[in-house]
Design a protein around this nucleic acid. Structure first.
Length: 416
RNA sequence: GGAGGGAUGGGUGAGUGGUUAAAACCGCCAGACUGUAAAUCUGGUCGCUUAGCGUACACAGGUUCGAAUCCUGUUCCCUCCA
């Protein structure tokens, strides 16, 4: 399938990750010998990662599995500046505490995918604030600035487009390239990291780092970029009704995560199986070949594999069982997302709409009322028709009340 | 420093004194059809204790019976000139 010799590049290439590689032959050789070290940078603007970052996580996982050492670079320092890449609106600046808290949360998302530690191929997490905040301006100019020419920087796609459109392009944004290139240089020095991986939108920044290392240290460094993923219908990956599909379990239950994968579009199944699971390619080919309703088998497999990677096999199995129960038998299942409500509220007669809002199925009582009006709200599988309907302790079946918003979204309400 | 333009609901973006909780499009939710898919069609899309009430068109005041629309100040953004 591909000409690559190294396990890492071969895997990436065969599974359809790779978009561009700086020096294919050299990178291949590097990855095939010893312990290749590679890093990917992550933003610290939220306290959890969502499915949109999963591709990058998988890249690092493949690196580790292929005998390499993955470095997770947290953009603690760059977050202080604000990534201008998708500019439009400047983001609110975060405090150190917020950034640190975010990094703690994000680290959790990595745990299931990477083995962290002190061993030679153990993953490590570093924060670019460690060096960026100490870097003096003069130092930056002398060490980094001399190696970049305005001539080439203005030719960069993103820059050129902004200039051509006569859009403002701030000095800060212009320097983002320098900071990210400097990150690479710093990791090269500290950890002998010679490979940066990223989405294809990072190509310019990655090449910047590669060149900097060459000029500053005379070292050889490489870059690999992966295709940006969108859904088959062109949507952004990982966004649904209630916002992002978060990886951390406290923000998105395993069942919901499983459902996310179960509901991908037909056209995405094969691609997603290759990117987000570790099933052998020949098995994926078989699953992908299924047609019509048969393809649901492949989706279940995708959901199981993807959920198992993040939440473990047990959670995946429970989710599948729950889905089975809910969708094919219309029963309730314990694995559904659950919200607790004071028993006193139920005894007093809780509005059905309020109950929906409490489980997070809807954002407000009003939204729940709309569902009721449209005949999409169910309590214990009974359609609710009255917007003023209330729940009582009599509705509790087997210790909980099952609420359904439409056919796909379900939750349990437990008296506590 | 000077001159001008702008800030509207998740996004783009109409609206220039009352009929505007605010067009249209996108997104999103639901219903129908299906396979828990896509496409398509239909309805919905600020909140609440919903025949009503409360908030809302950057922020704070003012004019008016009545303001997203007019006036004043403030903040932020942009363009051109220096």
């Amino acid at each position: 399938m591909s000409d690559y010799k190294s396990e890492f590049l071969k895997t990436l290439s065969d599974r359809g990750f790779v978009k561009q590689v700086t020096h294919p032959a050299e990178v291949d050789a590097y990855c095939a010998s010893g312990v290749p070290v590679g890093y990917i940078g992550f933003d610290a603007t939220a306290d959890s990662l969502h499915v949109g970052s999963l591709l990058q996580i998988m890249l690092l996982r493949h690196l580790q599995k292929a005998g390499g050492k993955p470095i997770v670079l947290m953009g603690g320092g760059t977050t202080k500046v604000g990534d201008p890449t998708d500019k439009e609106k400047s983001r609110p600046l975060l405090t150190d505490e917020q950034i640190n808290a975010n990094m703690e949360g994000i680290k959790k998302a990595f745990q299931p995918f990477l083995k962290f530690g002190d061993g030679p191929t153990d993953a490590i997490m570093v924060n670019n604030d460690d060096w960026l905040s100490k870097l003096g301006y003069i130092e930056l100019l002398r060490e980094v600035g001399v190696h970049f020419t305005i001539n080439t920087m203005v030719k960069q796609d993103t820059v050129a487009r902004r200039l051509a459109a006569e859009q403002p392009y701030t000095f800060l944004e212009f320097n983002y390239l320098l900071m990210q290139s400097y990150d690479f240089l710093e990791l090269f020095r500290r950890h002998n990291c010679r490979m940066q991986i990223g989405g294809s939108d990072q190509w310019g920044n990655i090449v910047g780092g590669v060149n900097l290392i060459h000029k500053a240290e005379g070292g050889d460094a490489f870059g690999v970029t992966a295709h940006l993923i969108t859904t088959a219908s062109g949507g952004k990956m990982g966004k649904t009704a209630d916002g992002a599909v978060w990886l951390n379990a406290d923000r998105r239950s395993p069942f919901e995560y499983w459902q996310f994968w179960r509901n991908v579009e037909d056209a995405d199944v094969g691609r997603f199986l290759r990117l987000f699971t570790e099933l052998p390619l020949d098995e994926i080919a078989k699953l992908e070949a299924l047609e019509g309703a048969e393809i649901n088998t492949a989706k279940v497999r995708l959901a199981n594999e993807a959920t198992a990677l993040l939440h473990g096999e047990k959670a995946a199995n429970e989710s599948e069982a729950a889905a089975q129960a809910v969708f094919t038998q219309g029963a309730t299942a314990a694995a559904l997302p659950t919200a607790e409500v004071p028993t006193a509220d139920l005894e007093a007669g809780m509005l059905v709409a309020a109950a929906f809002a409490a489980t997070g199925l809807t954002e407000s009582n009003g939204e729940a009322r709309r569902l009721i009006k449209q005949g999409a709200a169910k309590v214990n599988d009974e359609k609710v028709t009255d917007q003023a309907a209330t729940l009582s302790t009599a509705d509790v079946v087997d210790g909980s009340i099952k609420l359904s918003a439409g056919k796909k979204r379900h939750a349990l309400l437990k008296p506590a």
